[in-house]
Amino acid sequence: MSVVTAEGLSLTFPGDVQALKDVNLSVEAGEFVSFIGPSGCGKTTFLRVVADLEKPTGGEVRVTGLSPEEARMQRAYGYVFQQPGLLPWRTVEGNIRLPLALMGQDKHVMAERVASVLKMVELDGFGTKYPWQLSGGMQQRASIARALAFDAELLLMDEPFGALDEIVRDRLNDQLLDLWRTTQKTVLFVTHSIPEAVYLSTKIVVMSPRPGRVAKVINNPLPPDRPLEVRESTEFLAVAAEVRNTLREGMD
């Protein structure tokens, strides 16, 4: 079943900025799709259209078979923004609990979930801190924890690890892979890092700018079970080279 489909999707912002032009894409259930491309090529905009935060000016988008608005109303996706987006007057726990409370979740379930996602992003013990008491990277992890706790079938992540150091990033990549494998979630993941895209995805969407469009969709032949060492394998390097070349062509 297709979780996200876009047909002839275009979006022109007021002031005649064409952020997306004729984007065709189909994401199947359980896929992990990375979006990569130069700054300003419309990656965030595409995710926002899927999330019903922007309305397309042309073409059609379906999310879990519904219109983006219907999907949003049914809380079909969790969204991790490019910036942490935590409420400053709530503790980390309070922030993670907020969407759960909006869903009318039971208190015990909430407490359990909060504890487990905090452990997952290695923030256990920081639940009672306020966002301003955390470093930028820790705030971003709290924001990821919140999206994980929300536990939707579709996860939209806009450069979630951009603000993190290499080591934490590797660990979180690993955990995200684990999570994806065990829960069979569908993930749309924006990144600027070629290794990250190749390591995580089943499919890599390379985008090119002005106007933003899909340059190439590259299928990743790596098996789902990926230890960190896979990055030295020849298959891995071959995919990475293909992504790099496509990106370079897109710039001309």
Binding site: R72, F81, L87, L102, F150
Partner: peptide, 20 residues
Amino acid sequence: ILEDQMKTWSATAFQTFLLL
């Protein structure tokens, strides 16, 4: 960003008022 965030959780106008 927080307004968008509330929207993705399909919070009602009143919830957005009270919580944000």
